[in-house]
Design a protein around this nucleic acid. Structure first.
Lengths: 153, 153
DNA sequence: ATACCACTTTGAGTTAGCTCAAAGTCAATA
DNA sequence: TATTGACTTTGAGCTAACTCAAAGTGGTAT
């Protein structure tokens, strides 16, 4: 498929890649130095980013935003570079990470409940004066009654 | 209520407070120095932690784990110390933070979908060989068909 | 009473993840 | 052809959030 191939041959300077990915150009160079990005081509000395490179950057973003340290991302990337024989390891790694992210989502959800209780608490204090809900235990049970929501401490 | 009061008078050394909160004793001292914790008492020169202090530490944990920088937590804590006249500001702050956490939860959920696609991809590559699903576009539509899940890039 | 060890303070060091500076190179535009 | 300005490299600097070291103090177990 000549056209499909050609359609994918769009390339970008580091400034364009930076704009498209939301990173600073310095950060893209840094990621490459650190081994988080591989196979970035050059035109003379300058970096040339392909669509595939941008996808790879997107995956780095995904892993980073879900809390994976750059060091671990680097290990994953180097597994990828070692080809098909590392697929089992990559599967293992992604499964572990998925579980970790699930754990994290649950935790943050619980913490958000607590923050939303605080919001309710301050709203009520604004309306009724802070003396009216000074007792935490009864504030909590009133919150459950009025909002139907749970909070755990 | 003498009994209830007494039940709440349990106190802890920094080592006990550290164990109970999951922090290092050094970190608790650091948080106090930085203004994230106030009103920690002393017995002679040593820190004495009350149940209320532990609750305050729990709130710090909640804000920190939901991505609030220590600097912002410190501002919140200093609002609290300024009493009832800062309730409107605290409400504002908590509302903003709750929204930010909601945004974050959505984002991480989307990223998790992408990670779970990777898991499926590697599982399939293990079963069928990586050549069988090398084409991303068809891998994606097959994923949707087989799992009923969506992925966005 | 004495030894021990967790505690205190001040101040320096560490790690992750960028971010900037300086000096030089190359491609596009006037 | 000269200028502009985005690019290159190496290497230093920065911020957040701890973490440790050194020297000294005080509460508790033997």
């Amino acid at each position: 498929m000549k056209t499909a191939e050609k359609a994918n041959r769009a390339t970008y300077t580091i400034a364009e890649a930076a704009r498209r990915t939301g990173y600073d150009a310095e950060t893209l160079r840094y990621y490459e130095r650190e081994g988080l990005l591989r196979g970035i081509g050059r035109k003379s000395t300058r970096r040339v980013y392909t669509e595939e490179n941008l996808m790879a950057i997107g995956l780095v973003t995904c892993l980073k935003k879900t809390g994976m340290p750059l060091k671990a991302i680097k290990e994953y990337v180097s597994l990828t570079a070692r080809g098909d024989k590392t697929i089992a390891k990559r599967l293992e790694l992604m499964r572990r990470h998925s579980k970790e992210v699930a754990r994290q989502l649950e935790e943050v959800t619980r913490f958000k409940d607590r923050i939303d209780f605080k919001v309710w608490y301050y709203e009520t204090a604004m309306r009724e004066g802070s003396a009216a809900i000074a007792d935490m235990a009864s504030a909590l049970s009133r919150y459950r009654r009025e909002t139907g929501r749970e909070v755990s401490f």
